[in-house]
Amino acid sequence: MNAFQYLSRNWPEVSAKIAQHLGMVGVAVVASLIVGLVLGIVVSRPRLQKVGRAIIGVTGIAQSIPSVAVIALMFVYTGIGPRTAVIALSIYGVVPILFNVSSALLLVPADILEAARGMGMTPFQVLIQIELPLASQSIMAGLRTAVTIDVSTATVASVVGAGGLGDIIFVGLSAVRPDMIIAGTLLVASIAILSDVVLAFLQKSVVSRGLSIPS
């Protein structure tokens, strides 16, 4: 049996795995985005420089831990099931988003911030109307990285019983079924590529055209 035969014969089960996979990634990415945005904003406030450095330091270390290890570590605390996977993926996905959000916010030119303040924007209005839109390109790039990482890392989540497309690959591995391994791999890769394409479109509509004009 080749990979495509496997897929067509087992489509109901496969589609359930796809749904699980997407569900895990989706919830994790939304959580990462919220946490990453909030932390990124905190880190980039000049008044919170010390806190910011600490947060960046900690996440920098977190980034050096392999994704499998993060899932394994979470397993110690939250046991078997998709919850463990979602928490692990959320934590792991925060890193690229936080880095991109904070560095982009710190790069917003001082004269633009001063103009915004001088025109009578409140700090919150400056953040919402000026800083975040100017950082949007970089934030979207961080989001895309997080999604790509999460889609592939979620495969490993199978080992803690979280389900998803990892199940197909791991079963294929233990049963020596190359068709299953290839089918699972193809699906994971396609989801990663497709989600990136979708996000690229989203990026175009989120990021102002004025920012993509070369200055």
């Binding site: 633009i112 001063e114 103009a115 001088g118 000026i130 100017l134 004025g210 920012l211 200055s215």
Partner: peptide, 15 residues
């Protein structure tokens, strides 16, 4: 908001 403000480099919002 009641005072006009123009700075060097103008600080137009590029977005």
């Amino acid at each position: 908001r009641s005072i006009g403000y123009v700075i060097q480099e103008i600080g137009l919002f590029p977005h």
